[in-house]
Design a protein around this nucleic acid. Sequence first.
DNA 1: CCTCGCTTGTCACCGGTTTGTCACCGGGGC
DNA 2: GCCCCGGTGACAAACCGGTGACAAGCGAGG
Lengths: 225, 225
Amino acid sequence: MKILAVDDDPDLLALVAFALSQAGFVVVKAVDVPSALRVFAHEAPDLAILDINLPGGSGFDICEAIRKQSRVPVMMLTARGEEEDLVRALDLGADDYLTKPFSPRTLLARVRALLRRAGLETGGAMSAGELHLDLEAHTLRVGEAEPVKLTKLETRLLQILIANAGNVVGTERLLTHVWGHRGSGDRQLLKQLVHRLRQKIERDPAEPALLKTESGAGYRLVASG
Amino acid sequence: MKILAVDDDPDLLALVAFALSQAGFVVVKAVDVPSALRVFAHEAPDLAILDINLPGGSGFDICEAIRKQSRVPVMMLTARGEEEDLVRALDLGADDYLTKPFSPRTLLARVRALLRRAGLETGGAMSAGELHLDLEAHTLRVGEAEPVKLTKLETRLLQILIANAGNVVGTERLLTHVWGHRGSGDRQLLKQLVHRLRQKIERDPAEPALLKTESGAGYRLVASG
DNA sequence: CCTCGCTTGTCACCGGTTTGTCACCGGGGC
DNA sequence: GCCCCGGTGACAAACCGGTGACAAGCGAGG
């Protein structure tokens, strides 16, 4: 799980990074707006923690830019007594905020809550109807049949589809979830992945019963069970 | 050690699952009565944590069904102020209960207490099938054969594998358990460690019977016997 | 302090699998 | 017809796991 932390105060940034990495997260750092955006595009983190006061811009700018291209959870850091900032942050699509000073403990708890809310903090397995996906073993069991072995990307694709079982998941969201921002815009990647996955899990890959195409929108996993 | 957690509240379920998996348990989840019973039959967990209020039934039903076929410890989750439920739960054979809200810390303490009572908690030694690992002496005994001396890292690797015997343990989890976060991402380390361990414990290291590779996912210890 | 032996980390290579890329097909809307 | 979209097959590039060799680290004993 990769987290982007942005702050111009080196001490605070180090503290945040230390707390997060102790907890097992991979942390990428930035100290100003342009580098934050560059790192975000490059590393495709799963969550962003943004300070509001930054040299040459603000965390709002970053939040806005991120929201234009991604739905990753965003947490803003504010100094005490700047309540009006919070309204603006939440308006811009931030998911949570933390008032300085805060304890590493609190930070971790909030980060975990955000990841959980985003469906990213799944344990080892998830299910929808007849489908049981084991994220550790990279296997999918359909009903009582033998589990099918999956590749890493196939597992990631099914993870987000099962998390949204029965609903259409947009092409762009699938791309960023499976490949990060690198794959953004390349529909060919998704075409092939879906094709290969259907060969494995569909009874008749030419007439998919589980992984439906929603023309012009994305794909939808049928959760019958 | 595998634990079944059943709750219809996704947040609480995720929290419980996260706390348990952080502590090294394998967690399997379910959100309703039928799927809980299906998962229980299929996964044979060592302990079950059941919420009482579930859509389309209650934790009591699950507890009753489990008790008909198994003696695994069962812990029930109740909302505050439903004391009469506790009587019923304990009547049905539940071993412990927890009143919401509770802290992950409390949960873990109670779970460990239950496992200890059931004789499943490991001391300085642990076993799976024919394998007996002595964490103090750094030795592994296979069946009745002579114990094999292990290095520190080999012991750590076998510790997590035996704790999850029969299940796939993901590469990333192995790396962090053996090396800490430092080794995260370096698959070469794990490759070599597994290679060296196989030389020691496998009858035919080229055709491993105990420490199986799960391509693209991780490794799995076969618990035969 | 030095050396020995064991453990651990790093490099390079092989063969198999997975993933990325391209080219082409067919259907539906304009 | 033309264009856009999704599906498909083929091939190449990247990656993964297994293996041997060797160097670096480390503790024990001289």
